[in-house]
């Protein structure tokens, strides 16, 4: 079996995989990092979104081998170093942007990518960005609020730091 190595949340990892092993399977079944979820088999629900080399991707639609040598970031690596919630995670809690929690890791990873590209998104831009993330619980209302709020907080911090 071919072996693959990559950096996941800053940690060098490697493992034996098949050609058909998906990145999400490598994360969940070999690394036992189960925060990244699988909610569909047609690449639409977005529960599996992680970052590969700084960009959000659906880890169910990329082979582990294709991520060889890449920097992968998952929900397990999002919190602050001291274990407290990041601004974005905290906004999800503050605004009740999650219910069952299953889509949440993908939502957070997707939203983090948006805020990196567009620190000041409009509500419409947030809603359009979330096209690839399905949530069945929240009706999106509070997810959108949480992302807009996190964006505001992050902009405020940036101003304060200048």
């Amino acid at each position: 079996m071919p072996s693959v190595s990559m950096v996941v949340n800053g940690r060098q990892v490697s493992g034996e995989v098949e050609g058909r092993t998906l990145l999400v399977e490598f994360l969940r079944e070999q690394l036992r990092m189960t925060g990244t979820h699988v909610g569909c088999d047609t690449s639409q629900c977005g529960a599996c979104v992680v970052h590969v080399n700084g960009e959000s991707v659906k880890s169910c639609s990329i082979f582990a081998m294709a991520a060889s040598g890449a920097e992968v970031a998952t929900i397990e690596g999002v919190a602050n170093a001291d274990g407290t919630l990041s601004v974005l995670q905290q906004a999800f809690q503050d605004h009740h942007g999650l219910q069952c929690g299953f889509c949440t890791p993908g939502m957070v990873m997707s939203a983090a990518d948006l805020l990196k590209i567009n620190p000041n998104p409009s509500e419409t831009e947030v809603r359009e960005w979330l096209e690839g993330n399905i949530c069945r619980c929240t009706g999106y209302h509070n997810i959108v609020k949480a992302i807009l709020s996190a964006a505001a907080t992050l902009r405020g911090e940036a101003v304060a730091a200048e």
Binding site: M33, G35, T74, V78, L85, F92, Q93, L98, G101, T104
Partner: peptide, 18 residues
Amino acid sequence: KRREDVRFLTGKGSYTDD
């Protein structure tokens, strides 16, 4: 604020397939 949120937001939820 919901007490269950922290585990869900940090990938520490424990669903059956996990």
